[in-house]
Design a protein around this nucleic acid. Structure first.
Length: 629
DNA sequence: AAGATTCCCAACCGCTCATAA
DNA sequence: ATTATGAGCGGTTGGGAATCT
């Protein structure tokens, strides 16, 4: 009987029966009423469970999973049908704010509703709201109780559901921030887990940011152009979720990726401590609120990247970090004039700082792209830089010529940091303050391009970019960074902070921040003259960099100004780092976090247009930053 | 009216976890 | 301890319906 019914049902299912072979093949696709009847009859008789036996005993050509799903979602009694009631919607939102994407658990709280139903509802809702520029959570739910003021947003942030848009609802109220981003790294293990249309964003996300950058660069555009393009793509996909747009920032480390990168999990607590310590050093109160930590309470499924679990609530000041251009997103003024990233030499420090802040959390992501792994995506751009650097470096007398691996590592430091950058930007007490109308809802970093060493007391959080300058190319950016390092090189002796050399070897696959000491030491790596594989020729002693509007002549000066030098020194002394020459753990920076880890559009000779001249040297590039080709 | 686009939802897939053999 | 199996979860996809142009 059942088989006969099944045959008719398969044809009536709307799609062709999916019999891959004649015997034992299981049907897929929509269920027919006949199949439903069989299943209902079976469950009525035998009860739920043992789904794999359904096929054997009922004759249904459906796998057990399919039967269970069909029963659970459609056939079981007491299922509610139809739209969610307002009360149910409220519950879903509330539950999601607490549980995240735990659909099954949410369904348990909503009688008659299925996890799939809730999931679909949520995905639709979040998509709709984001497109409308509304916060995912209504304002009244964004700061429930006032004691976990960050947990909701943090949850969304970590789970990639925070809209980067907020419309007019958020303004500068941190508690109302709807808008962190989904900083999944879709190129890695991150999944755009929100909605289908977000997947289309992977079209953008899958496009290496560097490619976007360099494509535009090759067209002679400023750095902002590709990002604008990304925004356009973002808009076009009608997915304001950062599930795609900001995906270059944060990897969502799946459990699988955690498996492959055991370092990640092992490093969490360490990173917590480091972050805390760094925050404290930086003068920010450490907020141990477990609600906002979300380290222990993280959903088991997904292995999300954890944020540095401290909130920077220092009033009227913020730790600001400049974003490297290629990931700092677009920051253009109303006239469309792009504001550049990488215009400050302190970006270099920022970059490294970011790495240190977050590497303990996230430095494993992108391990597949690490230079250490002979990243296949590396177009040779870095190598070119290395060669150049080596050439130049080799000319220095009395200085050890650094190995290419060291140089590459250093370059990696200098050129990476997009993920941490944005993470750290969250540490700003105003992290949520610029999701308002000034921010492009699709641009995660709009208005959040902060300067590391500036004190922002402005009511808004617009960055301190040099608005007049434009990053012409990644090479320029790197050069700028290197320049900054060289700059700092010359001044580092004045800091009195002496940190033993840190060698980074290519054979190191995982790095270690065994403790705060390493973090702090690493933080101060930039104070190491020998750690700067740069030619002093790049150093322009006439340059004066701005620090919160005040001129600073050296990076240490900026550090001191920003961090309170005495605290740093005290911390270092406490850790036995200052002057003691403690051995410092090796670091490995993952190229996966580097926005320029994939630079096919830059200086790939084979792709050069006929009328382009190849970049011949870094000096060449520096003399003519536009001369990518 | 017709084609394109978007929305929505049912179903599938891959994975993890628990448990039994 | 290892392997096999079942159950369940969360993310993703395919396709029909609805809407837009």
């Amino acid at each position: 009987m059942e088989n006969m019914e099944l045959g008719g049902g398969a044809a009536a299912g709307g799609g062709a029966p999916d019999f891959s072979d004649d015997v034992g093949a299981l049907k897929k696709g929509p269920w027919t009423s006949a199949e439903d009847a069989i299943l209902v009859a079976y469950v009525t008789k035998h009860g739920e469970g043992n789904w794999n036996s359904v096929q054997k005993h009922s004759g249904l050509y459906r796998c057990g999973k399919s039967c269970r799903l069909r029963w659970a979602n459609h056939l079981r009694p007491n299922l509610k049908k139809g739209a969610f009631t307002p009360e149910e919607e409220r519950m879903i939102i509330e539950l999601h704010s607490k549980l995240g994407n735990k659909w099954a658990r949410m369904a348990a709280q909503l009688p008659g509703r299925t996890d799939n139903e809730i999931k679909n509802y949520w995905n639709t809702r979040i998509k709709r709201r984001m497109r409308a520029g509304l916060p995912v959570y209504p304002p009244e739910m964004q700061n429930p109780g006032g004691n976990n003021n960050n947990s909701n947003n943090l949850y969304l942030f970590e789970h990639g559901e925070m809209s980067m848009s907020s419309g007019g609802e958020s303004e500068c109220d941190p508690g109302s921030s709807p808008s962190t981003g989904d900083f999944h790294n879709l190129n890695m293990h991150g999944t755009c887990h929100q909605m289908k249309s977000c997947n289309s964003l992977t079209g953008m996300s899958d496009m290496p940011l560097s490619s976007v950058v360099t494509q535009s660069l090759s067209a002679g555009q400023s750095i902002s152009s590709p990002v604008r393009r990304m925004k356009r793509m973002h808009r076009d996909t009608q997915c304001s979720s950062m599930s795609g747009g900001g995906s270059v920032m944060f990897p969502q480390l799946s459990d699988e990726s955690s498996k492959t990168m055991p370092y990640f999990k092992a490093r969490r607590s360490c990173g917590t401590r480091n972050s805390m310590r760094l925050a404290q050093i930086a003068g920010f109160p450490y907020d141990p609120d477990p609600e906002s930590l979300q380290f222990e309470g993280m959903p088991s499924h997904g292995g999300y990247l954890n944020l540095p679990p401290f909130s920077c609530a220092r009033p009227n000041s913020s730790l600001k970090l400049e974003l490297p251009s290629s990931q700092s997103a677009e920051s253009a003024d109303s006239a469309g004039t792009p504001r550049s990233a990488m215009t400050s030499p302190y970006t270099a420090f920022s970059l490294q700082q970011n790495h240190h802040l977050l590497s303990s959390e996230a430095d494993s992501f992108g391990s597949n792209n690490s230079l250490n792994n002979n990243n296949s995506h590396n177009s040779g751009f870095l190598e070119a830089l290395l060669q150049e650097a080596q050439t130049l470096d080799g000319g220095r007398s009395g200085e050890q010529v650094r190995s290419s691996s060291e140089l590459s590592d250093q370059l990696l430091v200098l050129t990476s940091g997009n993920a941490p950058m944005d993470v750290v930007s969250l540490m700003s007490p105003r992290k949520s303050s610029r999701w308002g109308e000034d921010s492009d809802p699709t641009t995660p970093l709009e208005g959040r391009t902060y300067s590391m060493f500036s004190e922002d007391t402005s009511p808004n959080c617009t960055g301190n970019w040099d608005e007049t300058s434009t990053l012409q190319s990644p090479l320029t950016a790197i050069s700028s960074t290197l320049h900054a390092a060289a700059h700092h090189h010359h001044h580092s002796h004045a800091t009195g902070l002496k940190v033993e050399n840190v060698s980074m070897h290519q054979d190191m696959v995982v790095g270690h921040y065994a403790d705060e000491e390493n973090l702090i030491s690493s933080l101060l790596d930039f104070a190491r003259p020998e750690a700067t594989p740069l030619v002093t020729e790049w150093y322009n002693p006439t340059e004066v960099y701005s620090l919160g509007g005040q001129p600073c002549h050296s990076l240490p000066e900026a550090i001191e100004a920003a961090f309170n030098h005495h605290d740093v020194v005290a911390e270092l002394e406490h850790l036995g780092v200052g002057g003691g020459g403690h051995p410092v753990a090796n670091h490995v920076w993952e190229l996966g976090s580097c926005p320029w880890n994939n630079m096919p559009g830059v200086c790939q000779l084979g792709d050069l247009p006929s009328d382009c001249r190849p970049l011949t040297s870094i000096a060449d590039q520096m003399n003519d930053p536009c001369a990518i080709c």
